[in-house]
Amino acid sequence: MRPALAAAGAASALGLGAAAAAHLWARHVEIHRYTLREVELRILPPGTRTIRILHISDIHLLPEQQRKLDFLEHLALLRPHLVIDTGDNIASAAAIPVLARALDPLLRRPGAFVMGSNDMFEPMPKNPARYLLPDPRPEGMTDPKEPTLPVGELAERLSAHGWKDLTNARARIELGGLEVRLVGVDDPHLELDEMPAAAEAPPPPVHGKVLHLGVAHAPYRRVLDSFIADGADLVLAGHTHGGQLRLPGIGALVTNCDLPRRQARGLSTWQGVPLNVSAGMGASPYSNYRLLTPPEATLLTLRAPQPSPVR
């Protein structure tokens, strides 16, 4: 065999070996490496006590996923002041009661949620390469199908102890001297989002301190722009899975929406406002793998600005 051909064969074999190793890691190891990501923001009004927000998203739960359930139950030990769930909670109807049991301690804390498409429609096998292509649906098309999952039952379970349903809705939550004003939309990926109208004259906060949160499943630009125009201090979203497959030096290949790839996960800004995109905890059972973006929940610690030094 000529040296050049031998070298090419060796390189090809190495490439195939590396691809096989990456597949095994993504499918059998990283998909179970549940991680808590912690960030800190100084966006609260001066004099406000510190609050902790637990952001969970894209659980895609099947009842038999015990390691994922263990992680969900462990999150209650964080004792967050507020829980925000940005959707895609389930992968089957049978997962709803199992999810409710795992989340029960968190459901008894102040919280709010929106839904994603996988809370409404059962997952189906798809060609993974489709996600590398532009969205095939015509612009402005709303999915006309009836949900195949009992999304109403899921909403009842999530709101049973007081979590606010932000499906194209607004809500207020009082957190010990801080009024959290929330606005949310239905899943933008299905083009079900409708920004709820603002009250003409919202009542003044009891303690004079307000935090505005925008909440959506999929961080499409039009939705982010609407939240910013509405006065959001912080926007929370999921949907992207952090790209689900990331490459060294490149990062996320896709976001499955029109959000820039560099913002596929973690804390960034949109028009100067903090945006946290959760990489989520799971994936479709038909594409249950992750590479260089382990499943996660996020604990956001919000503080007031540091006082200016006395001169």
Rank of each mutant, 00 (worst) to 15 (best):
A20L: 11
P138E: 05
A218N: 03
E122F: 03
A20C: 05
A76L: 06
R33G: 03
F113R: 08
A199F: 04
R311K: 15
R157Q: 14
R311Y: 12
L133S: 04
A102S: 15
L192R: 15
R303W: 02
M141G: 00
L158P: 00
M195K: 02
E156C: 09
V98L: 13
A264L: 06
L224A: 06
K209G: 08
A171D: 10
A6W: 13
L14K: 01
P125N: 00
L275K: 01
Y131S: 13
P110K: 13
M115I: 11
A155G: 13
L302A: 00
P274R: 08
I173E: 13
L149T: 04
Y34W: 08
L41W: 03
E153G: 09
V29D: 04
Y220E: 14
L103E: 06
V83P: 01
E153N: 09
R52V: 08
I96D: 02
A218C: 15
T298P: 07
A94E: 15
A264V: 07
L106E: 00
V210I: 10
A13R: 08
N288M: 12
G184M: 11
I56P: 02
G266N: 05
G251M: 06
A129Y: 08
R311N: 13
R157H: 11
E122Y: 06
L267V: 03
L192P: 02
N256E: 09
L154H: 05
P309R: 12
L175D: 00
P196R: 14
G280K: 04
E122S: 13
G15H: 07
L192N: 10
Y289A: 07
M120W: 07
E40C: 08
L36E: 08
N276P: 00
R137P: 02
H81L: 07
T298Q: 14
P125R: 05
G238K: 11
L149Q: 11
L107W: 08
P260V: 08
E73T: 14
A7M: 13
V273R: 15
